[in-house]
Simulated scan of single mutants.
Amino acid sequence: MCRLTSSGVPPAEAARLARRATGTPPSVVGVPEQPRPRSRAAGTLPLGDVRQEYRGLARAAVRLDAPAVERQLEAAVEQYSITGAWQEVMVPALHAVGRKWASSGDRYVEVEHLLSWHVSTALRRYTPSAAPQGAASAAGPVVLACVPGEQHTLAIEALNAALCELGLPTRMFGAAVPGEALTTAVQRLGPVAVFLWAQARSTASLALARHVADTSWGVKGARRQPLVVVGGPGWSGPAARELPRPPTLRDAVAILSGAIATAGTGEQR
């Protein structure tokens, strides 16, 4: 029963299966070939309709059970792909831990740190070191960066992994990229798109986003500019109307892969 509940099975269902097992080893009680259920009971955290795997991941994190966290992240990615695992398992667990920490003073911060580190490790593990070279790379890569002063990188790590999973070229610059360095990188790389992440309103800079969007390269008469896409709750002001701001990882992948496909046909901005 402990094994089942730690993997996300609700306690009542785990008890029923354990009683029915009649000596069967716990590792085979769960009948893995059956569809994994979704649970609507979120306890004190009203997260709505979430996958069972999220519960197992959150419980393992609260126990600081690093091997179990690693196993469950690996299983989630293998079953649902990067995008599905991020949206339906990783993000709900991260939000739950964050809310628990926010409502409990300084308690549970170690849980959030452990879970974030393992999520980052899992995302990088499933990110190829380089996307296959082919027709798509001729359009230029997608540049991924956090705006100056922004240290939260998990979302762009997930986006980088999801794009690489599709074989699309990216350049990841990570946290708190200075504006001048970002402009220089855009001029050197000639990217088809630039994705800027801002977790807080205090770091989101519409002026920087506009400057990047106006950055051009190439020979006279055939100069190009990148599509600038923004992400994160920091862009909830005018940028939400002025620039593309996909609400989910799946939407961001669709916009950026579409930009690469369009650029590859010669219909560049």
Rank of each mutant, 00 (worst) to 15 (best):
V147L: 11
R36H: 04
E267D: 13
R51M: 12
S137A: 15
A239G: 14
V28S: 11
L182Y: 11
V143P: 02
Q133E: 14
S216I: 03
S27W: 10
S236F: 04
V194Q: 06
A136P: 01
T215W: 07
A162T: 00
G84H: 12
V229N: 06
L4C: 09
T44R: 13
G167P: 02
V147D: 00
E242Y: 02
E150C: 12
D214L: 06
W117R: 15
V253Y: 02
D106E: 10
D251T: 07
H118T: 02
G179F: 05
R40F: 11
R269F: 10
V69L: 05
G98P: 05
A263L: 00
Y108T: 00
A185N: 10
V177E: 01
E13S: 13
S116G: 07
A185P: 01
I156N: 08
T44E: 13
A85R: 11
D49V: 04
V89Y: 06
L4R: 02
D65V: 05
Q52W: 03
V186P: 00
M90G: 05
A76D: 11
A240Y: 01
S137F: 09
R241T: 15
P32V: 14
P247N: 05
P246V: 06
A261R: 12
A161P: 01
P247K: 03
A68Q: 10
L45W: 15
A213C: 01
I156P: 10
V109R: 00
V192F: 04
E180S: 13
L115H: 08
E70G: 07
A60Y: 07
E13L: 15
A85H: 08
Q225G: 14
Q87H: 12
T83G: 12
G23A: 03
L163R: 13
P233H: 07
E242W: 08
V97Y: 02
E110Q: 11
H152S: 08
R241G: 15
R269Q: 14
S137G: 05
T22M: 13
T127Y: 08
G174V: 06
A75C: 05
E267K: 10
E33Q: 04
R188L: 10
P92S: 04
A193T: 02
T170K: 00
L163W: 13
A66D: 12
L159I: 06
A207D: 14
R201P: 04
T265Q: 11
P226G: 06
V228L: 09
W217K: 01
G264I: 03
I255C: 09
A21N: 04
D214V: 00
R16Q: 09
E157Y: 05
G84Q: 09
A161F: 06
V253R: 00
A41L: 13
S81K: 04
S7D: 15
G167L: 08
T22G: 12
R224F: 00
L4E: 11
V111M: 01
L114S: 02
Q34L: 15
R20E: 15
S39W: 13
R171H: 08
C164R: 15
A213V: 08
A135D: 14
G48N: 05
